[in-house]
């Protein structure tokens, strides 16, 4: 049974015009895990998520709960219980918070329900509003939310979508310390019964909340394990010291500690594709 559950990636490879962005990645994430994917710009983190969710073509194998995902269309993959967020929060700006969540909850609705008006707030939607703290704003257009609130709304949309695998691309970028704390605790609660994979550059956030970490570098998995194991891996230190943490050679020389400013790292070619 355990073999069938969770996410199982084997030999995943993604190339764009001869450039190999993901180069044979193996990855196992079990339910209940809160896995962080870290790595320098261009390591292939976002491309990996794109491949799992069907956005880019890939070779190899991606199985979730025993079902092969590669080759399926994006909406079918989403229907088999996989949801994601994007680096820049993507919500339906002109629709209200409530409408955003209601749409996210409704992929399985029949035509008759679709053609009728929404008379009441579905139970899961009300619960998600509560969870993400936006009940008071349910009638506001999502475009008027603050940046952090939009990211929360996206997480809320995944909750009502009732996905069993959440792939979050930098969910706390641009959030204040308190907001990060709250987000991390929410992710911890969510991951108790689901599989959660987080791409993150914020190392403090990673250290506080990661149950396990995979370090990607140049399209491959460089290191994997608990936060402590990964931090003490000399290869990881080398990659990070060679890249971004030169100016960061302060008291934390023992571990990788590149304190990127949130959002200042989105310019790599791979992530833009």
């Amino acid at each position: 049974m355990t073999e069938l559950s969770g996410l199982r990636v084997r030999g995943l490879r993604v190339s764009f015009d001869g450039f190999t962005a993901v180069d044979g990645v193996d990855l196992d994430v079990r339910p209940g895990d809160l896995r962080f994917l870290i790595g320098p710009n261009g390591a292939g983190k976002t491309t990996l998520v794109d491949a799992v969710t069907g956005l880019v073509r890939a070779s190899g194998s991606v199985r979730f709960e025993g079902t092969e995902l590669l080759g399926r269309s994006v909406h079918r993959i989403a229907r088999s219980g996989i949801g994601r967020t994007f680096q820049t929060a993507t919500v339906f700006e002109e629709l209200t918070v409530l409408q955003n969540l209601d749409i996210a909850a409704g992929a399985a609705r029949g035509p008759l329900t679709m053609l009728r008006r929404r008379r009441s707030v579905p139970e899961p939607v009300a619960r998600a509003l509560e969870t993400i703290g936006l009940t008071e704003r349910s009638g506001s257009p999502a475009g008027t939310l603050a940046h952090g609130q939009k990211q929360w709304l996206e997480i809320g949309m995944l909750l009502v979508q009732d996905v069993r695998l959440l792939l979050l691309d930098e969910p706390v970028a641009g959030m204040s310390h308190d907001e990060r704390q709250a987000t991390g605790e929410l992710l911890r609660r969510i991951s108790a019964e689901r599989t959660v994979v987080v791409i993150e550059h914020d190392m403090d956030f990673m250290r506080s909340f990661a149950r396990s970490v995979s370090v990607l570098h140049a399209g491959r998995v460089l290191s994997e394990g608990t936060v402590a194991e990964v931090q003490s891996d000399p290869r990881v230190q080398e990659v990070y010291l060679g890249h971004a943490a030169v100016q960061d050679a302060g008291p934390t020389a023992a571990g990788p500690h590149p304190e990127h400013a949130g959002g200042a790292h989105a310019g790599s070619a791979v992530q833009e594709v």
Partner: peptide, 28 residues
């Protein structure tokens, strides 16, 4: 008017504004 104010109408606006996002919610 019925169509526009139905759930379908809301979804239609969502598709107009962000087709890709709708795809990731499991709709075609």
């Amino acid at each position: 008017r019925q169509l526009i104010h139905s759930r379908y109408g809301e979804l239609l606006v969502a598709v107009r504004d962000s087709e890709e996002r709708v795809r990731f919610l499991g709709y075609d």
